[in-house]
Structures are given as structure tokens and as C-alpha cells.
């Protein structure tokens, strides 16, 4: 959809609640180079959320939405879990259907949009928790990669089932004592980034959301690569501060400690050689553009 379509009819403009007027006026639809830095300066594509105070997932959501390169033509697919409590407040079309089937829904959706709009670049982005991505939905997650479906999968990894109250998940660390893991989890954290690489993802990134710049970069890479090459995967550590017994303000520290040397979330990226070249080209072009933009305009 063009930015022009996200407009309120003039005759009813004044009766619209202010946040909608604000969205039309100040949201960054259609803005070249939109990113996390727009947060605080412009209307975000996310309203109130009903997550716990201080939840890193909330900030991850904001970074992701601020960094979508093409929100006016992006449709997101979620799954059951904490993320689905945020999605109603997101200002891009998004789908919740069942628990774990998000990559199957996205496969059908991406293909339908391609059939209906062959000349428009519509981005489909999956965003689901680790239970949905790795446990109940692993089959459909991986099969969409095998098939080479051209969309990005984001996993908000909080290493447990948060919405149902902190049960063991496949991405939980070994030994962690949780509901349904009364003597501690008995097997290792599933290595989904490596699985993704082997299953046909052209770009894979695993990181925390402590550094917005890095989240933005990974997301943009993933979406651009998905358009050109095929499936991409991003795993973001968004600790459930409630279930791991932390305070509201301790989320950032938790993420930082997990990404230090030897931690579970040391930043890692996998990509094919073709993707490496493609991203290098893209970066060069962006730099050149910025350079031109910086040049003073002469009359």
C-alpha cells in the first residue's frame, strides 16, 4: 500500500481519536532508511502493549517495527504466546491463527500476495516465540526453509513458555529448573541457528536486543535477502525477566551478560557467499547515497 492510502477521509478527520491522526501525520511509512533511531522522534507503529513492565520483548518489538524497510507493504504473521498480546496494537496487518503454524500460514500468505500483486514487493515477516518456532511448530518452520519460501522468520527466544507460565522449552538451557522440568532440563538448548543454516536459510543471525543498531541491521539484511534469495532467520534473546526471577530493570543486564564471550548469545551470523556479496553491494550503495545526501544543496 502506498503511504497515500494510509489517510483519513477529510470529512471525518476531526472525529478520529488523536493517536490515529498522529499515525497518519507522523508515522514513518514510506520513509527511506527508517530505523530504530526514529523511535522517540516519530509516531511508532506500535501502541500500548500488555506485556510485563520492563519486558525486553516490548523493546524488541519496537526495534523490529521501526526497522521494517517497507511497513506499508509488510504483512506479519505471529503465533500464540506473549507476542500475540502485542500484535493487536501493531499498525501493519498481522495474522494470528493457531499455535505453531505461523510458517505454514506465512507460506500461503506470501504466495497469495505474490499471485495477487506480482509487481509489488510485499514483505512477509514471521515473528513468534521459541515454543512456537522450535517446539510445536518446528516441522513447519523447517519445511518452509526446505521449500525456500521467500520470507523472514524471527524468533523471540525467551528460553521458555512465558505466556503459559514458564514451562520448559526446546530453547531453554540444559539444567534450568522450570515447570515441567522439575529436576532441570535434561537436554541441550536446541541449536536452531545452525539448523536454519543447514535447512536452507540464506541469512541467519543470532543476537540479543541490547544493541538496537545491530537488531536493525540484522532485520534489514534478513528482509532484503529474503526478497532476493529465500528464507532468512533471526533469533533474538528476549529474556522473560519474570520467569527467571529478575526485576523490571534487569532485562538489559541479563541480555548483556548472555552476549559476552562464552555466553549463549554471542552475536553470530551465517550467510552464503552470494549473500555476502549482495549485502556488501547493498552497504556500498547505502553509503554512497548517504554521502550524496550529506552534500550541501547548491541552488
Amino acid at each position: 500500500m502506498s503511504k497515500e492510502k494510509i489517510q483519513i477521509c477529510e470529512d471525518l478527520y476531526d472525529i478520529m481519536p488523536p493517536e490515529y491522526q498522529d499515525m497518519v501525520e507522523n508515522a514513518t511509512y514510506g520513509k527511506e532508511g527508517r530505523g530504530w533511531k526514529d523511535i522517540g522522534e516519530s509516531k511508532e507503529l506500535i501502541e500500548q502493549h500488555s506485556l510485563c513492565a520492563g519486558c525486553p520483548e516490548a523493546i524488541a518489538f519496537r526495534y523490529v517495527l521501526a526497522s521494517l524497510p517497507n511497513p506499508e507493504n509488510t504483512v506479519m504473521v505471529g503465533s500464540t504466546g506473549c507476542t500475540s498480546l502485542v500484535f493487536p496494537h501493531v499498525a501493519v496487518h498481522n495474522i494470528h491463527s493457531l499455535f505453531g503454524n505461523q510458517n505454514a500460514v506465512a507460506s500461503g500468505l506470501a504466495r497469495a500476495l505474490k499471485v495477487r500483486f506480482p509487481d509489488v514487493q510485499k514483505d512477509v515477516v514471521v515473528l513468534a516465540g521459541d515454543g512456537a518456532t522450535v517446539d510445536i511448530g518446528l516441522d513447519m518452520t523447517m519445511q518452509s526453509w526446505f521449500r525456500g519460501e521467500k520470507f523472514t522468520t524471527i524468533c523471540f527466544d525467551n528460553e521458555l513458555y512465558a505466556n503459559t507460565g514458564g514451562q520448559e522449552s526446546g530453547l531453554m538451557q540444559k539444567g534450568f529448573v522450570a515447570k515441567m522440568a522439575p529436576v532441570g532440563k535434561l537436554f541441550d538448548k536446541v541449536r536452531l541457528p545452525e539448523i536454519a543454516r543447514e535447512a536452507g536459510c540464506h541469512y541467519v543471525a543470532c543476537l540479543t536486543v541490547s544493541k538496537p543498531q545491530r537488531v536493525e541491521k540484522a532485520l534489514r539484511n534478513a528482509i532484503f535477502v529474503a526478497r532476493e534469495f529465500g528464507p532468512t532467520y533471526i533469533q533474538l534473546y528476549t529474556p522473560c525477566i519474570l520467569e527467571i526471577g529478575k526485576q523490571s530493570m534487569e532485562g538489559l543486564d541479563e541480555m548483556k551478560s548472555a552476549e559476552t564471550v562464552g555466553g549463549r548469545f554471542v552475536f553470530k551470523e551465517y550467510m552464503t557467499d552470494a549473500v555476502k556479496d549482495f549485502l556488501a553491494d547493498l552497504e556500498a550503495k547505502e553509503k554512497a547515497q548517504k554521502k550524496t545526501a550529506k552534500k550541501p544543496v547548491t541552488a
Binding site: K5, I6, Q7, I8, C9, E10, L12, I15, M16
Partner: peptide, 8 residues
Amino acid sequence: PGPQVLWK
């Protein structure tokens, strides 16, 4: 008025 007439 609903979305189909509020939005242009």
C-alpha cells in the same frame, strides 16, 4: 462510522 468509510 467504521474503517471502510473513515479511511480514504
